[in-house]
Design a protein around this nucleic acid. Structure first.
Lengths: 195, 195, 195, 195
DNA sequence: TATGAATGAGTATTCATTCAT
DNA sequence: CATGAATGAATACTCATTCAT
């Protein structure tokens, strides 16, 4: 077991290792022992780097969001038209649909666990989530942020459906609904512009 | 502890008692003991009527769905226009938003718990869920069922947002997005009809 | 494993079984698993009868005190003279010296554990202890309760010495100090009576 | 973290730092990490100077006893009469009552922890304790050491009572029992001298 | 039919100690 | 000398389920 040099660096490595562990089993179902085994460290070491299971989760959420945003910008085209930007977003979500499914399940699972939990954590999560939302709003450059929010709501619904259906092998289904949404927004924007 | 004559009848009574217990604590967090106490029976009795915690949940889901549908029809106006029917649905969801939040959380919580569970259960749930979906599609009388499904996706997203925000006191937020969706669908239908 | 008929009866049996377990290892060192094994029940059963390790201890202390007092009266002579009564007490303590050592260690061990604990428990213990003290004061029939308290302090010191010396095989040592104390009290009472 | 020249010197400094840490939390409750933090060193350093937690305790006890004795002589009057010497002792104990409470709790806590421990440690502790006892016996200059031992037993009882009552704010209580004891010893000595 | 006592593997977390750097 | 990362067995306590009564 190599002695760690950069504590912060190693903590992030562990965190990255957690992602798929949490995603695979869920916050409530995975045990600290399983996490430790998955990371190939002892439970003691795990607790050396994180105060608690909850703490791991919180940091994980933040990390995921961070990665999410930078991954999107790394790949998002500098699209000129609204349609192109909408397409970019929908394609990005589809491309990472499994990732978003996992994240959403994690999210809600945690909400369940902390049902009567402190507001502090909930607020922290909300804050992280808002960052994602604002990023999308900014990218779309819509005059009315309501429409951007509208899109986000729909995307969430779409991801949820994928969860219900345990992953989509059926990309067409996703695509057709995406196109429908894009068209609707475009029409709506056109109409708004005219009046 | 009513001395039971009709086994089936009593089972349903117990099930009804479970609804708020599951909703309040969540599938993963509530214990069989708590359920038994909440129903004012012994754990033994609980196991006499249900095979397992999971079995309770499955039957509960079915029961909820049943109640859901009949409640909707008991209240839904025999609306002539599509707009009126859309309004009816959105209003109905809003009126029962807390109920739907709880149900959705229950739902996903169960998905988490049974992640590596048998497909049998998942299929059962999917079947139940399809009943709800088909009911809405029928009610809307749209030529293109895709649009109905589109609406359902959006509603799910809407409920999810309410969960993230831990209940909406902000009815306006919900209303404005509802209206946006209704208008979009109406426009889209109009355009489709023209071509 | 016989199914228990009288819950309260069985709880007391378990409690009695705990006495020597706690005495042998001490409150802080014994584990719930060890207690369960010692009682030949599962940990689950242990928790079925007692809320927590602390709860076991509290009930144990009370039970011990109760037994202590009734044992004393069952054996204490209806002594006419003060000297006889003092002798009776000192003899009783000597006869049960191991028991008192164990109890005292348990006592202090618990004080350690709950150092920053709730006052509730401490008060409960104090109350139990006061019962023992008052019993002795009553029995001695001294005009001045201070002298009775004085004796109790000394007895506590005596027990403590036995702990330091890990049990006395040397009964003479105990006896000589007992006699010294008895003489001192008698002289003091005589003098008080004269003036 | 002073760069150390004299290893022995530094060890004593650390030991002194431990006193209040052990006293505050108790032998069983304090962790090596807490001790290290309290001393502002790493656990590694702690283990560099002491073999184990137990070793720290043993050395601490010795150190405390040493300090105890020298503190007493630094302050004790060269009293001519027995009464004055008895007063001196009782006053000294009262003045340091909190200290003695802590020490006694530490003592017994350790006895608990090492219940089934090797005799070696117990003997070491007994030796240290005997030094204190002999010092008192010497100081009192009584012909019969039994009486001195008798006093010590009583003092231990007195300290124990203070523990049970979690510190005495009630100095009077202590004083009255002290005077009672002093008088008793004086009377006894007088009588012994006469015969 | 109804009860609730019994089970024991499983949970998050702690801690004295070791040892590579 | 000094550090603190690493260990893993141990802790109190939980819980779905079974089964004798």
């Amino acid at each position: 077991m190599p002695k760690v040099v950069d504590r912060e660096q190693y903590r992030k490595e562990l965190l990255n290792g957690c992602i798929e562990l949490f995603a695979h089993k869920g916050y409530g179902s995975i045990t600290m022992r399983q996490i430790a085994e998955g990371l190939k460290v002892s439970t003691g070491t795990l607790y050396h780097y994180f105060d608690s299971k909850e703490a791991i989760f919180m940091q994980l959420v933040q990390e995921l969001c961070e990665q999410d945003i930078s991954r999107f910008f790394a790949q998002a085209p500098k699209a000129e038209t609204l349609e192109a930007r909408l397409q970019a977003i929908m394609n990005f979500v589809l491309a990472n649909i499994q990732y978003y499914q996992q994240q959403m399940m994690l999210w809600i699972d945690f909400f369940q666990q902390t049902r009567s939990g402190s507001d502090e954590e909930v607020n922290f999560l909300r804050q992280v989530w808002n960052r994602s939302r604002d990023t999308i709003i900014d990218y779309l450059q819509l005059q009315d942020p309501t429409v951007a929010e509208f899109l986000i709501i729909f995307i969430d619904g779409l991801i949820l459906q994928c969860i219900y259906n345990r992953g989509i092998e059926d990309t067409d289904w996703y695509q057709s609904h995406s196109q429908l949404m894009i068209q609707m927004i475009l029409s709506y924007e056109q109409l708004s512009a005219q009046t």
